[in-house]
């Protein structure tokens, strides 16, 4: 059993190297090797400082230079932006209320920056600083809540101050474009075996699709449409939470064996 300090070092090492896009296999092998080293060192009365030389950051930097990048990491990054774009745009098109404006473009860029890159950065920094502790969870969840509030606020700003509008289609045209894009995205995600994104996109599109068909094409502002899409949205949230919990538990079981 390793000391808390050594465990924290190994966790920091893993997170930092993964954040730098290093190969998962190489990171895992290195972690196992250092775990073996630390177990033997601690049995002989040494501490983790004997490995790092006192500075965890500079040791991670020195070892990071020797590790390869995860194959296709840049391609995966571009794909992720493409998926996020689909996840945000398609449900909005299906509701018929999509409008491409300067505010929306700025909103998308901020979402990618703060929700994508920012969340990873905050999570990484918290884990490196506080390890697997309650403080890490509290700060990370707080950041998530802040981002969610920002996104909700952002939607209000977009509606009140759209700026320059580049595209404004009729609800029917938006719906047709949304449906076509949904088909294309589903085909691409299934072809690339990105099951999670395919299911996520379907679930996020479900409230608009079901409400539209159940109300026989009523206006998205009508009471029936809002009620049905609202109920489906709650069910979708519960399903997504369930899927994430299941995946997390599966991952935990896998790492235990």
């Amino acid at each position: 059993m390793l000391s808390k300090k050594s465990e924290k070092f190994l966790l920091s090492l893993r997170i930092e190297l993964m954040a730098r896009g290093k190969s998962d296999t190489e990171v895992e092998e290195l972690e196992e090797e250092l775990r073996d080293h630390l177990t033997e060192a601690e049995a002989r009365g040494k501490s983790v400082d004997s490995v790092t030389g006192g500075s965890v950051k500079s040791y991670i930097r020195s070892i990071s230079e020797e590790l390869s990048l995860e194959p296709g990491i840049k391609k995966k990054g571009v794909q992720l932006i493409f998926y996020i774009f689909g996840l945000f745009t398609i449900p909005s098109l299906l509701s018929g209320q999509f409008e491409l404006s300067t505010s929306l473009i700025i909103y998308y860029l901020l979402v990618i920056l703060f929700m994508g890159y920012g969340s990873l950065y905050v999570m990484k920094e918290m884990i490196v600083k506080y390890g697997d502790s309650r403080r890490t969870y509290v700060y990370t969840v707080s950041y998530g809540v802040l981002i969610f509030a920002g996104m909700v606020g952002g939607q209000f700003i977009i509606r009140s101050y759209p700026g320059l509008v580049f595209y404004e289609g009729t609800p029917y045209l938006n719906f047709i474009i949304g449906l076509s894009l949904l088909g294309v995205f589903l085909l691409i995600t299934l072809f690339m075996k990105r099951w999670f994104f395919a299911v996520l996109l379907l679930l996020l599109s479900a409230p608009e699709l079901i409400a539209r068909f159940a109300t026989d094409g009523a206006s998205p502002m009508s009471d029936d449409y809002l009620l049905i899409s609202g109920i489906i949205l709650i069910l979708v949230n519960l399903t997504i939470t369930g899927i994430l919990l299941y995946m997390n538990r599966k991952e935990d079981k896998k790492s235990e064996t």
């Binding site: 290195l30 004997s50 490995v51 590790l67």
Partner: peptide, 29 residues
């Protein structure tokens, strides 16, 4: 051989200025 043993042998042979962690970047290389 393995990491810790390499380190022990280096120290046995009086190899100077060696810290425990410095061998792993070399082994990766």
């Amino acid at each position: 051989t393995y990491g810790y043993e390499i380190l022990e042998k280096l120290k046995e042979k009086d190899f100077p200025e060696i810290s425990d962690g410095s061998i792993y970047p070399v082994l990766l290389r």
